[in-house]
C-alpha cells in the first residue's frame, strides 16, 4: 500500500442543506420586535391628598372619558377626532377668547376616566392630547426657527417646551363601571 496516498476529499455539498435548515429555523423564530409606545411620566406617589389648587377655570381643559367610552370635554360631548384640533385651539387661543387659556404656559389639561373605560380608548385620548402638543411644538418651531422640531438642538427644544409646557394632570378615576 502506498503510504502517501492523499486523503479523500470530504463531500461538502450537504453543508448548504445543513445551513439552510438552520437558516429556516432562525427565520421562523425571528421576531424583529420593535418596541414602541406612548411614553408618559407618572407623578410621584404621596400619601397626602394633593393640595387643591385653585385654578382659573378658563385655563383648565377638562377631559372626561366615561365607562361607555364617551368623551366629555369642558362639559360638552365630543368626538375623538375633533379632540386634537379643539385642544390645540384651547392651548394657543389665537382669538384671545375669554373662555380659553390665558396663555399656553397656564393651560392645564385635566384627564379623568372611569374604571370601566377601555384602555384602548383611554390611550387614544391621551395620544390625541399629546399629538395636539407636538403639533403646536412643530408650528412653533417652524415660526421661530424655521426648522422642524425634530431638527432643533436640545436647547431650542427646551426653550419651546418651557414656553408651552405639556401638563396633563390625571385625576383618580371614578368607580363607574368597575369590574367586580
Amino acid at each position: 500500500m502506498p503510504k502517501d496516498r492523499q486523503a479523500p476529499e470530504i463531500n461538502a455539498s450537504s453543508m448548504a442543506d445543513i445551513a439552510f435548515l438552520l437558516l429556516i429555523f432562525f427565520l421562523v423564530t425571528t421576531t424583529i420586535d420593535i418596541d414602541k409606545g406612548v411614553t408618559v411620566r407618572l407623578p410621584p406617589w404621596s400619601e397626602e391628598p394633593p393640595e387643591t389648587l385653585t385654578l382659573n377655570t378658563r385655563n383648565v381643559y377638562s377631559v372626561l372619558v366615561n365607562q361607555h367610552d364617551e368623551l366629555l370635554v369642558r362639559g360638552e360631548p365630543m368626538e375623538l377626532k375633533e379632540l386634537r384640533d379643539n385642544a390645540k385651539e384651547f392651548i394657543i387661543n389665537p382669538k384671545k377668547l375669554e373662555n380659553m387659556s390665558e396663555n399656553p404656559k397656564k393651560a392645564i389639561i385635566s384627564l379623568k376616566n372611569d374604571r370601566g373605560t377601555s384602555y384602548g380608548v383611554y390611550l387614544s385620548v391621551y395620544n390625541e392630547l399629546k399629538a395636539a402638543y407636538s403639533e403646536i411644538y412643530e408650528d412653533e418651531s417652524q415660526s421661530r426657527f424655521g426648522e422642524t422640531y425634530e431638527q432643533l438642538t436640545i436647547d431650542k427644544k427646551k426653550a419651546i417646551r418651557a414656553d408651552i409646557p405639556l401638563v396633563i394632570s390625571e385625576a383618580e378615576p371614578t368607580e363607574f363601571g368597575a369590574e367586580d
Binding site: K36, G37, V38, V40, P44, N127
Partner: peptide
C-alpha cells in the same frame, strides 16, 4: 408603579 418609584412608563402601542 407610582408607589414604587417607577415613574417612567411606556404604554405599548402600534
Amino acid at each position: 408603579l407610582r408607589k414604587n418609584g417607577q415613574l417612567k412608563v411606556n404604554y405599548s402601542a402600534r
